[in-house]
Design a protein around this nucleic acid. Structure first.
Lengths: 233, 233
DNA sequence: CCGCCGCTTCAAGCGGTCGATAAGGAGAAA
DNA sequence: TTTCTCCTTATCGACCGCTTGAAGCGGCGG
């Protein structure tokens, strides 16, 4: 996988050397990365907050703050990998930086190819991380979006594709009204107008499968003329 | 986090130099790591299958196989981080190893402290990730992703490349739905749309080989309009 | 009280997707 | 070249679920 990423990945470079910034900007932009630059630690942290980068390249020797402290400060709220650049190649610096939350440490002068390869390795790891285990429990109902499974009183019920899509959208917007338009756009991505009755039939069938009393809905409430609402409480 | 891990972490060291193996064994054991050793690539892969390590330290220059190929072979079924050791410090070797699936690259001679710090950084990242065992048993079916072998009632069945790829992807996402799109992207990495019928044929052939009753699937269930799901239990 | 309107439910037709099978075609090995 | 394996395409029957029409139900206003 030496190829450029299909999507533009946001990278933040924090380095006080003008020449390094320019060089990295040029090299990374050519690889279709979306590059932000910062010359000081303070500026770097601000930019990180603004752009929320997916990877940070951080020089250890900044004028206004120690590199390790920058690392820790970023780590406090950010999970993106941090790659350290430094002219200092001694063991203690490396250990301290890595233990401060950095993910890799590269000694200057470095070769662009190695930096890019290490960035790819870090990003490969980061992207394979699971986002969150999206499981919802409400009363007798359990909805597992990742597994596409729904349980009522521990018994798995089999939902149709459309039924599950509807339920998923409602669960994702729990307590909020999901309009007819939103549902229909999600279900049939063509924008042509569809019969609103269609939704009602599907919702009706869905209720029969997951509601304790389908005619007195506990989970899926209808907002007349607007849409539906899922109530977990 | 300079402290030793609270739980014994399984580390596999693959290196042909006796002295390195001894030194690492001693250093890592003192840090409460549970160390396995291997002197050749073949032995290393076998040990990896047996012990399912949480981190692999791999020498790039092994007598019986190229380091990159070992990397790729491990990556095919293992998600644990791989740290490369090598006397070769040139850029090309590093890039190739990192792109082959390695997570870090350290040039010999190295200092123990740096190795330990890099291991900690890698393990910190991998901490939250589930380690998948290299072999899965479900009823009469045994799937060994590492060895690319499949057994039914103890008898090995021979799968074609595509069939195994499909089964592997399904097993790795056991209980979760694997969409048609995911399967097709994995099988044919070209993004051009393919005939969904193709998948059905391959899955059908696969079922005939591993299902007790192919028409009433026990392992590979189809989710209409979405994809397929592997059910171990 | 009655009719209108929107939501719910039921029932039936139709279309799409799936599974099985067979045959064409590409590539490797003999 | 032949032969074999495996990928791919094609065809067909069966079935599930989407869709639509229509009736039942309740609230609200005239």
């Amino acid at each position: 996988m030496t190829s450029a990423p299909e999507r533009n990945i946001r990278v933040l470079v924090i380095d006080d050397e003008e020449s390094i910034r320019r060089a990295l900007k040029s090299v990374l932009s050519a690889r279709k990365y979306e590059v932000s630059l910062a010359a000081t630690a303070a500026e770097g942290i601000d930019t990180a907050i603004e752009t929320n980068p997916e990877l940070v390249v951080l020089d250890l020797a900044l004028p206004d703050m120690d590199g390790q402290d920058v690392c820790k400060e970023l780590r406090a709220w950010m999970t993106a990998p941090i790659l350290i650049l430094s002219v200092r190649g001694n063991e203690t610096d490396k250990i301290q930086a890595l233990d401060a939350g950095a993910d890799d440490y590269l000694t200057k002068p470095f070769q662009a190819g190695e930096l890019l390869a290490r960035m790819r390795a870090l990003l490969r790891r980061a992207e394979s991380r699971v986002v969150s285990p999206p499981e919802l429990c409400a009363g007798d109902l359990t909805v597992n979006l990742a597994r596409r499974q729904v349980f009522v009183k521990g018994e798995e019920v089999s939902l149709t594709r459309t039924e599950f899509e509807i339920l998923a959208l409602l669960v994702q917007n729990a307590d909020c009204v999901v309009t007819h338009r939103m549902l229909m756009e999600k279900l049939w991505d063509d924008k042509e107008e569809r019969d609103p009755r269609l939704l009602r039939v599907h919702v009706s069938n869905l209720r029969k499968k997951i509601e304790p009393a389908p005619s007195l809905p506990r989970f899926i409430h209808t907002e007349p003329g607007v849409g539906f609402r899922f109530t977990p409480e």
